[in-house]
Amino acid sequence: MIKFISWFYPLFISIIVVVISIRFDFSYTVENFDKVLDGTITFSSIVVGFLGALLGILVSIKDSAIVKSIFDSKEKHTLKRYFNETFIMGFLVVILSCAMHVLRVYPSITTKVIFYIWLGLTCWFIPSTHRIVNILMSVFFKTNSKDKNERPESNKVIEVNKRQSMKERLKK
């Protein structure tokens, strides 16, 4: 049950927000909506870039015990799903925000439908971003007693000469 909730709570939140917005007739005609769109584009772009960087970090520490245990478990598919969901939502939010910039000056039923789709995707994107960032930060900052003083296999340099030459290169 908890896994079901963790998979779908971003969608549930977005549905609730859209239903409330429709009920109270909230739409794109609100004053300064263009600034909301600008902020949404900026926020979504930063988050997608940040997630790309976190994914790069995850790959670079793939030899650590914690990351190995994730990739060896069935949760690997859940992590992949969360990443894909957040990336796709982020790109869709940016694309629809750009479309809303153009469409907001043409009041029509189509524009209103696109607005509610945009609102739903935006409200889906935010909790899904929180979920994946929370999971990744837990992975990055979690240490266990076995892993505290141990470097990942790909980061070990045993030869003294090679280690010294690396230190010298880094000083420059």
Rank of each mutant, 00 (worst) to 15 (best):
L136W: 03
V59N: 08
T129H: 02
V133G: 08
L136C: 01
I88Q: 06
R131Y: 07
S60E: 10
I57A: 12
N84P: 02
L11C: 11
D147P: 00
N134G: 09
Y9W: 08
S73V: 05
W118H: 01
L103R: 01
D25K: 14
M137G: 06
K35P: 00
N155I: 08
M89G: 11
D34E: 08
R23S: 15
V36A: 14
G56A: 00
S128V: 03
K172T: 09
K172F: 12
L119K: 04
D63A: 12
K162N: 10
K3T: 12
R151Q: 13
D63M: 07
I46L: 01
Q164H: 10
T86R: 00
R163V: 04
W118L: 00
N161M: 09
P107H: 07
K148I: 14
L37K: 03
F91T: 00
G90T: 03
S60D: 13
P152H: 07
S69V: 07
N149R: 06
T110L: 15
S27W: 01
V18F: 02
L92C: 14
M100G: 02
S165Y: 06
L51I: 10
G56V: 02
S6M: 08
F50N: 01
T42A: 05
T29R: 13
E85N: 12
P10N: 03
W7Q: 14
I114M: 05
K146W: 07
S64K: 06
H77Q: 10
F8Q: 07
E168P: 06
P152F: 07
F140M: 09
F115T: 02
K167F: 13
L37Q: 01
K142H: 12
F33Y: 15
S97R: 04
M166L: 15
I2F: 15
I158Q: 10
T110D: 09
L54D: 05
V157S: 00
I135N: 10
K142M: 12
F43G: 01
Y28K: 03
E85M: 13
V93H: 04
E159R: 08
T40Y: 04
D38I: 06
F33Q: 07
K156N: 09
T40Q: 01
L11Y: 05
S14C: 10
T110Y: 15
K148D: 07
V47G: 06
